[in-house]
């Protein structure tokens, strides 16, 4: 395994280990996404279409991700550990990649519960929706991790993250909802893949500038 991937694996494992120890994020994400689904049941009128419920599912996922991203750099923030990682000789983009992978894992665990809950409460899920969510997770976590690192530097951290993130996430919602509700879901899945590729590359390339001066 090359040095770069070894660093990424090391740092990802570190984040997963920290989460297993502290249980900071995943239980909160689970509780949040299920609560949100329950709220949506009461927010939707009784005769609302199945399509409306699917739209709500995407809102739930987006805001759950936002909650998780707000905690993404928690360990680094509390002990200025970002400095500790920046001092290490590893490529800075490896820090971004590891954090993105860890966030995908946490969000994925939350969705493993949320999707069956959605199927139970509202309606069955088709494969296009599930594929859309998998693709959306990549884009959300790639862009979200970068934006979370940006928000870290500001005074209004918690406030700033959603403001920075939501305009960037609008195309994800379009792609995701399209994949769930349109007849030709494949087109929207393709769009999500395009989004992932474009934004993952520029996030990967620009992370170093976000964390250094």
């Amino acid at each position: 395994m090359s040095g770069y991937l070894r660093d990424v694996a090391l740092l990802t494992r570190k984040d997963v280990l920290l989460e297993l120890r502290a249980r900071d994020a995943v239980p909160a994400l689970l509780l949040f996404v299920v609560s949100a689904l329950v709220v949506f049941h009461f927010a939707l009128p009784a005769d609302a279409a199945e399509l409306a419920a699917k739209g709500m599912l995407w809102v739930a996922i987006l805001f759950t991700a936002l909650l998780g991203l707000g905690r993404a750099f928690q360990a680094e923030r509390q002990q200025s550990m970002l400095d500790g990682l920046l001092l290490a000789p590893c490529d800075r983009s490896a820090i971004w990649l590891a954090k993105t992978l860890a966030t995908i894992v946490f969000l994925g665990v939350a969705e493993l519960v949320a999707l069956p809950a959605f199927a139970l409460f509202f309606s069955a899920l088709d494969w296009e929706t599930v594929a859309g969510i998998a693709l959306a997770n990549l884009g959300i976590c790639a862009v979200g991790t970068l934006v979370a690192a940006m928000a870290l530097a500001s005074r209004a951290r918690e406030l700033l993250l959603p403001l920075l993130f939501l305009p960037l996430a609008i195309p994800i919602v379009v792609g995701g909802v399209g994949a769930s509700v349109a007849d030709d879901g494949g087109r929207y899945l393709g769009f999500l893949a395009l989004y992932d590729a474009v934004f993952a590359i520029i996030s990967w390339a620009s992370f170093e500038y976000v964390v250094t001066e």
Binding site: L10, R21, A22, Q78, Q79, S80, M81, G84, P89, C90
Partner: peptide, 27 residues
């Protein structure tokens, strides 16, 4: 090698885990 105001170690990891992590990162 840098020692700053903050210890720059993860509080949720043990002393050994912290140093092992950095030993690997520094090869």
């Amino acid at each position: 090698g840098y020692v700053g105001h903050e210890p720059l170690v993860y509080r949720e990891l043990t002393a050994l885990e912290n140093l092992t992590l950095f030993a690997r990162l520094y090869r």
